[in-house]
Amino acid sequence: MGLFTLDEARKELVRLRPLLDDIVALRADVVELSAALTPGGRPTPLGGLPEHKAAEARLNELMTEVQETGVELKGIAPLLVDFPADLDGVPVLLCWLEGDAELTWYHRADLGFAGRRRLP
């Protein structure tokens, strides 16, 4: 996969938002089901072991689907995705973090999340 322009990344984020929202919802289900399955865990109306396995499998499918677009899935809690790009000749990652309304951040590829800055 190649690099994204800012416009392409923003369009791809809009396209991916339903999948990203599903990942967030499934993540919560997996955590709740996991807690219910621990000794002394509180039962959940979400189900038991079969539902846990199904939710984990679907979560993995969705994460793979996101990564197949060329987008890098960097974290799941909170959800963090990066779009490889080039900004004025510098390799960067256009960075979207769960809760961001849109794609407005980036960081140099060599600096990671700690070097995150607002797009100019």
Rank of each mutant, 00 (worst) to 15 (best):
D21F: 00
K74Q: 09
P78H: 04
D29I: 00
P43F: 00
H107L: 04
T64K: 15
V14L: 14
R42N: 07
R58I: 02
S34N: 15
D86I: 01
A85M: 08
L62Q: 06
K53Q: 12
C95Y: 06
L26V: 03
R27N: 15
V81S: 09
G89V: 03
G41H: 02
L80H: 15
C95V: 11
L80V: 13
L26E: 07
R15P: 07
P18S: 12
A35F: 01
K53E: 15
V66E: 05
A55N: 11
E72I: 12
G70N: 10
L62M: 05
V30F: 07
G47C: 13
G75T: 08
R108C: 03
D21T: 03
L62R: 04
V66S: 06
A35P: 02
L79F: 09
E61Y: 01
L94S: 09
D82C: 11
A36Y: 02
P84N: 08
E12L: 12
D88L: 13
E12N: 05
L33H: 02
E12H: 01
V31F: 03
G70V: 06
L33Y: 01
F83A: 11
V92C: 04
P84W: 06
P18G: 08
N60I: 01
K53W: 02
L97S: 07
I76N: 08
T104Q: 07
P78G: 04
A85W: 02
I76F: 15
V30M: 08
P18V: 01
E12P: 06
E98C: 12
V24K: 15
T69V: 03
Q67P: 07
H107M: 05
D100H: 14
R42A: 04
E32F: 01
E98A: 07
W105G: 04
D29C: 07
V24Q: 15
D88Y: 01
C95E: 10
I23A: 12
E12G: 09
V31W: 04
R108T: 00
R17A: 05
M63V: 08
L13V: 00
R58E: 13
L37F: 02
D88K: 14
L59V: 06
Q67R: 14
V92L: 03
L37S: 14
I76K: 13
E56C: 04
W96N: 11
I23Q: 13
A57M: 13
G41A: 02
V14N: 09
G70A: 10
D88P: 05
R27D: 09
G99Y: 02
L59F: 12
P50K: 09
D82R: 02
Y106D: 06
